[in-house]
Design a protein around this nucleic acid. Structure first.
Length: 195
DNA sequence: CAGTCGATGTACT
DNA sequence: GTACATCGACTGG
């Protein structure tokens, strides 16, 4: 069943851990894509210089300061997109980056967008790969996961604490000491399994 | 396997 | 101008 607003109103790191194992559903051209969240990163305006929200609201990051449960999608490196789930409460500027998914359904549809020869494990094992496989770009920025018909999350059993690994976030140059990357231990669809 | 590097648009200094 | 929450192609061992 679809996750409701209250789920997204959790504190930053609580939601980061809670999101692991949850299933992302995409309705697209009459087809359904499904994938399990296996890796995330947390970003917060307060004290986190790596967050887009760190210096306050701008046109780009406005969604981060909106309602929890909204999708924040941004364009990066001139060719990629990354998706985040807004959390906490309105005005806070906190969100969780979805870094990797485990494909469950619609794998051939994902392969159409990612490339015919891509191995299953490479379809969604990175933030921009996940966006591409799920056909998400700036058009989906500001979408409400609690009400949208084409994209939402459904509940799934919690991942046990002992199966969650945390460590430094990937690909940033500021606030590198914060251990705000979380992933499922041993899952083959995580973007960078080791370290 | 690991390391390097080019592609490419935009937000912000 | 510069940096950027990345990816994939390429190198060398």
């Amino acid at each position: 069943m679809r996750l409701e607003r209250g789920f997204y109103e959790q504190d930053l790191l609580d939601l980061a851990r809670s999101l692991l194992g949850k299933v992302m559903v995409r309705q697209l051209n009459g087809q359904e894509l499904r994938a399990r969240i296996v890796e995330v990163e947390a970003y917060h305006q307060d004290g986190d210089a790596a967050a887009h929200s760190f210096s306050g609201p701008t046109p780009r990051n406005a969604v981060m300061f909106g309602l929890p449960g909204y999708l924040y999608v941004y364009f990066i490196y001139g060719m990629h997109h990354c998706m985040n789930v807004v959390c906490c409460s309105e005005g806070i500027g906190a969100a969780i980056l979805i870094r990797a998914l485990e494909p469950l359904r619609g794998i051939e549809q994902m392969r159409i967008r990612r490339g015919a020869r891509i191995r299953d494990r490479d379809l969604t094992n990175g933030p921009a790969k996940a966006c591409a496989a799920f056909a998400l770009d700036r058009d989906q920025n500001g979408l409400d996961l609690c009400t949208d018909r084409s994209l939402f999350l459904v509940d799934a059993p919690r991942v046990g604490v002992s199966e969650i690994v945390s460590g430094p976030r990937i690909g940033i140059s500021k606030a590198t000491a914060l251990p705000w990357r979380f992933y499922i231990r041993g899952n083959p669809f995580v973007s960078k399994p080791h370290q």
